[in-house]
Nucleic acid binder design. Structure first.
Length: 477
DNA sequence: GGCGTCTTTGC
DNA sequence: CAAAGACGC
């Protein structure tokens, strides 16, 4: 039986799934024959082309999506180039009369969508964008302050979201899809996403990119850490978090699917507090996207304009290099940076600590940290990355200088009390006994005996640099 | 949420 | 009298 429906391209950017996919569903509901497409378009990403770690992840994620689509009778068309030219060419090749895509908040992608919409309209092709990544549209009428302005502070934003927290069921995956028309589908290798040297092999002991890996991880979270999330999420030596971020970023799974899975499980009163804490973190993700949508400059400019006068330290390449590669002499910081290098991911509590040390103690601009994370994180997301770095750097709306200059030693003692996380990522410190692991420079004899290869002192004096940062903050008043 | 200071607690 | 708690910047 031949499929006589008109063709629509289903252009997937960060919606790499077939289930709960409003983009695919809209094309089907519109009576179209869907042609799934991924366009690798680094030239369209402005100053934030996808980093190396995420490209390595994407390579595997696209392979998984292609296999899933083939299983349904379809497949994935892979192309690279400038997205507008590629889409226009695919429209011509396939005879598509509509293009469906997933909406993004990144300024460069929004600009592309505007250009593409105008270009397609000239040839009578509709561009239909759908929200596939967020629970709330960032410009939703129902997500405004009393004055009708976008939120700039998380707590009132969260209160508003909670009042209308979604309960709807995810869309089911289609049971089958029509075959692709005769088109050159391209190969994954053509996209040149996988690393040339095999620096990423260690990643895949920790991760399984793609929808199946995402749902397995979600199941493990719901059956394991979710109910104690509020108590355990800050302890990096165990699996206390969901680790959904890379899957969420590429849309291998949707936040609505996560909410539904959590709602389907039975929780006692104690566990409900854990789930509530987790949902609050999903709301932080919504908040970051809300902010970047309304304040697009925050991808690289201070959210709080007062910081234009802030006395950042001169860029210090050697200090930055020590931070990047985990040679600061502060064990919890070095452990985090090593975890990042090894896994393409870092526990969120440790992200806060390394961010505080970089921006407050070393007083390097938050963008220096944001750029390193951008290249090394498999979950790199412009909205989350910019928002989190501005939060820890103090340039966000709610700067609180006294509280955000973390003492990395206190943080280490509180959140990694037995030093298990440090020892896991810092073999050269593993033999150091007891509490000395948090601040080995205070125990020079132990350091010399058990960890001779480790720096004798931190790259920066923590007390002194804290005072200097406070002075710099006070100068802004 | 950090730190200095003052107060309370617990043995 | 040391450790934990409360408070203000």
């Amino acid at each position: 039986m031949t499929d006589t429906r008109p063709v629509a391209l289903v252009w997937l950017r960060n919606a790499l799934r077939v289930d709960d996919n409003p983009v695919l569903q809209a094309a089907l509901d519109g009576g179209f024959r869907p042609v799934p497409v991924y366009v690798h378009a680094p030239g369209d990403a402005g100053r934030w082309p996808m980093g190396a770690a995420q490209r390595a992840w994407l390579h595997r994620s696209l392979a998984a999506l292609d296999a899933r689509l083939r299983g349904l009778g379809s497949g994935l068309v892979l192309r690279s180039g400038r997205a507008q030219a590629v889409i226009e060419r695919l429209v011509a090749e396939s005879g598509a009369v509509a293009v469906y895509g997933d909406r993004r908040v990144e300024p460069a992608w929004r600009a592309l969508d505007q250009r593409l919409d105008a270009a397609l309209a000239r040839s009578g092709v509709r561009l239909e964008m759908r929200q596939a990544a967020l629970l709330f549209e960032p410009d939703a009428e129902s997500v405004r302050t009393g004055q009708g302005t976008p939120y700039r502070v998380f707590t009132p934003f969260w209160k508003t979201l909670r009042r209308q927290w979604p309960q709807d069921r995810p869309l089911p995956a289609p049971t089958s899809l029509p075959p692709l028309p005769a088109l050159a589908t391209g190969t994954l290798a053509d996209l040149d996403l996988a690393p040339r040297t095999a620096w990423d092999t260690g990643f895949w002991e920790h991760w399984e990119p793609g929808g199946a890996g995402a749902h397995e991880l979600l199941d493990a979270f719901v059956e394991g850490a979710a109910g104690a999330y509020d108590a355990q999420r800050d302890l990096p030596d165990r699996i206390g978090t969901s680790r959904m971020s890379p899957h969420l970023h590429l849309g291998e799974i949707s936040p609505r699917q996560i909410l539904a899975r959590l709602a389907d499980a039975r929780w006692n009163a104690r566990q409900k507090a854990g789930i509530e804490a987790y949902e609050r973190e999903l709301a932080w993700r919504e908040f970051s996207h809300h902010l970047l949508w309304h304040f697009p400059h925050m991808q690289e400019e201070d959210f709080n304009p007062r910081f234009a006068r802030f006395a950042w330290a001169e860029p210090a390449p050697q200090v930055l290099e020590a931070w990047r590669h985990g040679r600061t002499g502060i064990p919890i910081v070095d452990a985090g940076m090593r975890e990042l290098w090894a896994c393409g991911w870092m526990h969120n509590r440790v992200r806060l600590i390394v961010g505080s040390v970089l921006t407050k103690n070393l007083r390097q601009h938050w963008l220096a940290g944001a750029r390193w994370f951008w290249d090394t994180l498999v979950d790199a997301d412009l909205a989350n990355n910019s928002q989190n770095w501005q939060w820890i750097g103090g340039t966000g709306a709610d700067a609180a200088p006294y509280f955000r200059i973390f003492n990395p030693v206190t943080q280490s003692e509180r959140f990694d009390p037995h030093g298990r996380y440090i020892r896991q990522w810092m073999p050269e410190l593993a033999a150091l006994p007891g509490k000395a692991i948090h601040a080995p420079w205070t125990q020079p004899a132990l350091l010399a005996r058990y960890a001779p290869a480790y720096p004798k002192t931190p790259v920066v004096d923590l007390a002194e640099s804290r005072e200097a940062a406070l002075d710099a903050f006070r100068a802004l008043r």
